[in-house]
Amino acid sequence: MKSISTIGLLFLSNAFMTLAWYGHLKFFGKNSSHSGTAMWVIILISWGIAFFEYCFQVPANRIGSAETGGPFSLLQLKVIQEVITLVVFIIFSKLAFENFHFSINHLIGFIFLIAAVYFIFKG
């Protein structure tokens, strides 16, 4: 159960992180009706969104870490988080940006990341 909780919280955390880091490009970009918004306002909005990232990330790491009774080593947690980050980023990019294209090179790179997860967990 701790594994599923950790992974679920990491997905939620990464959804907020991706929105905070890249959402402004969509919602405050040059083709947006809010394109003239001051940078400091965009930064504050991103910080506000990132707050929720931390509300999920910190419990995910505490629940999942072997240091606090969870099933994953620190290295395993980090690799899981990185793969989840890419999955969430690809989904967000495909939904939010018309010019995002997923190529065979991206797929190959993603396969190597999955292989990294395999080797990290095997060791």
Rank of each mutant, 00 (worst) to 15 (best):
Y22M: 09
Y118V: 12
I111K: 08
P59S: 12
Y22I: 01
A60L: 09
T18A: 09
L113N: 12
W47I: 06
V83H: 06
L77P: 00
K2G: 01
S103D: 04
L77F: 06
M1Y: 04
A38Y: 05
T18G: 09
G36F: 03
I49R: 08
G109Y: 03
F28N: 07
A15H: 01
L44Y: 02
H24I: 00
I120V: 15
L12I: 07
H34C: 05
H106G: 02
L10S: 10
E53L: 07
L75Q: 09
S5V: 00
I90A: 10
N105V: 02
F52A: 09
F28V: 04
L25F: 11
A38Q: 11
G123D: 15
N99F: 05
I84T: 06
K122Q: 12
I63A: 09
N14R: 14
Q76G: 03
S35K: 14
S65N: 08
L86S: 07
L113A: 12
V83G: 05
Y22C: 05
N61E: 08
L10T: 05
N31F: 11
L12P: 00
F52I: 07
H101Q: 10
S46K: 05
F97S: 06
G8N: 05
F56L: 09
K78F: 11
A115S: 12
G48W: 08
K94W: 06
L19C: 05
G109K: 05
F16I: 01
T37H: 05
S73N: 02
G69W: 04
L44K: 04
E53C: 13
P59V: 11
S3D: 08
L10H: 05
Y54R: 14
S65D: 03
C55K: 15
F51W: 13
G29V: 04
F100N: 02
S3K: 15
G69L: 06
W47R: 04
E67S: 14
S103W: 02
I108L: 14
S35A: 14
N14W: 03
H34M: 15
K122L: 12
P71L: 11
F11N: 03
I120E: 13
K2T: 01
I80W: 13
Y22S: 10
S3M: 12
V88F: 02
F28R: 09
V87G: 08
F11L: 12
I114M: 15
F97W: 04
S46L: 02
E98L: 10
S46C: 10
Y54L: 13
K94N: 01
T6L: 06
M39C: 00
F97L: 07
L10M: 15
F112S: 13
F110W: 03
A116M: 13
S33G: 10
F102L: 12
A115C: 14
A50V: 05
A38H: 12
F89I: 02
A115F: 14
I91S: 04
Y22N: 10
G109T: 02
F110P: 04
W21P: 00
E82S: 13
